[in-house]
Every structure is written in C-alpha cells, then in structure tokens.
Design a protein around this nucleic acid. Sequence first.
DNA 1: CCCGAGTTTGAACGGCGAGTCAAGTCCGAG
DNA 2: CTCGGACTTGACTCGCCGTTCAAACTCGGG
Lengths: 204, 204
Amino acid sequence: MSGTATKARDRHQEILDAAARVITERGLAETRIADIAERAGVSPGLILYYFDSKDRLLAEALTYANDQFYLRMSREIRRISSAREQLRRLIDLSVPGYLPEYGRLDEWALWVEVWVRALRDPEMAKDREALDQRWRSQIAEIIRAGQTSGEFTSEVPAEELALRLACLIDGLAIQVVMNDPQVTPERMHRTCMEVAANELGFRL
Amino acid sequence: MSGTATKARDRHQEILDAAARVITERGLAETRIADIAERAGVSPGLILYYFDSKDRLLAEALTYANDQFYLRMSREIRRISSAREQLRRLIDLSVPGYLPEYGRLDEWALWVEVWVRALRDPEMAKDREALDQRWRSQIAEIIRAGQTSGEFTSEVPAEELALRLACLIDGLAIQVVMNDPQVTPERMHRTCMEVAANELGFRL
DNA sequence: CCCGAGTTTGAACGGCGAGTCAAGTCCGAG
DNA sequence: CTCGGACTTGACTCGCCGTTCAAACTCGGG
C-alpha cells in the first residue's frame, strides 16, 4: 500500500522534474510530451496517466521548480546568523551563473515562462503571486533581523526596502540570464551589494 | 509605382500592427495567423504573401512594437527641458496603467514575450540587447544632463545609476503588469521617484 | 478597352503532436 | 500459485493550424 503510494509519488516527481528540465532547455512553447517522456525515461502514454493534460503538467512543473529553488535558498539562509551574510548569500544565489556549483537549472529562465503564462492563466497568476510574496517576505525578514541586531539602519520601512531590492534583483537577473554583455554576473552582484549597502547603511 | 510601394508598405505595417495587438491580447503562443488576418481585415493567405513565415512575422512584430514605444517616449522626453521633469515623465510612461490615456498596448506584456523568445532565438536576442541598450542610454543621458545642470548630484557614475534605475523599473513593472495587489501602479511610481531622488540627491 | 503585374482570396493539403486505448506487465495479497 | 489492480506501453486517432496554390480581382499604362 505505502509501496504503491511511494512509487506513484516518485513517478509524479520524476515527471515534474523531467518537465522542468525540458522547459529550461527548450522553452515552454517548444516542450512536447514526447520530450518529457524521453527525458524521464518512460513512454509518452505514461505522462498522461499521471497528469490530466499537458497544460496542467507544465503549470505544475513551473511552480514546482520555483518552489524547490525557494526552499533550497530558504534552508541555506536559515543556517546563517548574521543578517549581512544572509543578505550576501541571498544575492549570491540570485545572480544567474554566479556560483558555479548551482549552474544547473536556470531558475530565471523558468521565471520568465511563469510570467508569460501568468499574464493569461489565473491559476498561474495566483501561484506566481504567492511565490513572489514569499520571495519579498524572505528579504524583508532578513532586513528586519538586521535592523533589530543593529547591522542595518534605515528610516525606510523594511517592506519597502525589500520590494526595491527584490525588483532590482529581478530586473538585473533578466539582463544576466539574457547574456547581456553589459551586465555580467559579477556586475550584477556588485550592483546589488552596493545598493543594499547604500540603502541599509552598512559598509561593504 | 510609388503608389504600389506605399500600398505595400502600408499593408506591411498594418499587419505588424495587427500582430502586435493580437500578441498583446492572446500571448505569443496563442497567436494564430488567422487571428492576425482577422484583426487586419484580410485573408490568412495574404499574411504569408507579405511575410515569409509566421515565426518571422511574430519576431518582427515584437521588435516593431517595442521600437514604437521607445520612439514615442524618446520624442516626448526630448521636448522637456528640466532633467528632473524628464525623469519624472520617463517614470510616468514606464508604469503600466499609470497614465490612463496610454493604457492601450501593454508594452510590458510584449517585453516578457521578447524575453522568452530571446532566450533561444539569437536574432531576437540581438534585437533585445539593442533595445535595452537604448533604454539604459536614454536614462543615462537624462542623468548626465541633470548632473551637468546641477539638478542631480551623485558620486556614482551615470551609467551605473542608469542600470540601477532601468532594472528597478523592469522589476517593478513586471509586478504591476501581473496585477500584483501589493504593487499598484501608484506604489511603483512612488518607489521609483523615491529611489531616483535618493540616488540622485534631490528632494521630491 | 485590354493586358499583365501586383494583390488578394479561401479552399485544400500535410504534418505534427495531444490525447486515447486495448493490450500487456508487474507485484503484492491471499 | 493465482488473481486482480495498479502501472506501463506504443500504436492509433483526430483536430488544429501553417503553408501552398490556383483562381479571381484590381488598376494603371498602352
């Protein structure tokens, strides 16, 4: 019984995982069920045995992958005590291709796909909003922690600072993930750190 | 002779225009040739008489529309003398849905489509880079003008400030165009103005 | 008035890929 | 061992467009 459930859950995740990978490589529009099946090492029919439709699968895969990314980041940051170091780590992880070991799933490419889809799909829009909400809250929390510990100083409310930082990161990450030669990962990193230092009143 | 050329050019633009509109409404992925034809008031066959393929047409339509937007903004800003007012106007125009009269083509929705496509299509990537380059230069120029006129003060180079502002605007505009309840057009506008005032050393 | 090049039409074609299904295979329970 | 339900397969169907094309239309010049 639990054997069955476990196996089924694995398949489910395996397929979501395969889907996320294929989407990252080929883009949402060019992703075929056959591609996902091949990547997962199963037959095309099985994909539709576990998911009602290609569309639902793709939507689930997008939120799933972004969820994973958020959880990984969240876990890592919780281990750090200094708010300044937490913020630095958050920025490290946000710059596409900055940390060599994390080069795998290009989360930002998936984000762009989420945005496109969220423009028309209310379901996706809801998920996106929740995801972004968490992302900003994560940043806000770090800022608040730094404010109480005295590491950061600012008259601007933490929520507003978090919004500024989150959006700056978003905007810069787009340029980086697009391979804009003017916005290298290093430059994005430096810019984020400088703005943070400036807004939060600490020296680099 | 010029009659023919004029007519052909008109059709060309008419179709690009129709395409841009349909893409804005339905999204790149859901845009069919038949939709564009209907919107342009011609038969589907004619679309492929003027464009080699659907794909090329869509790519052209995206850059065409963004080009138009940039040119409109650029023209408007050139008429303003004060750098501070130029910057305010640039921000006004950048906030989706802030100015009621400009509510029509939601340029930012098209931008997201550009990004998705640029991730895989080198042609589109090149266009995107050029477009973004101009966008940042526009901002940088305003900043430099304000610095020489004494309206702005900052030790940070204009190019770097322009990057920060451009990316902040991008990131915020995404939230706004996604209808995030936490990021209203008004809030985006306020945030942009505050950051600009802060970074450029002027009072609101 | 008529010819022909440039336009415009819409019906027809063809390929592609999502979703279906009937037939297996696997595996645990009895 | 055997039965049955869950799981898996891959060939098939079916509808949807992108694209093609032959026929019609327009209109300016001769």
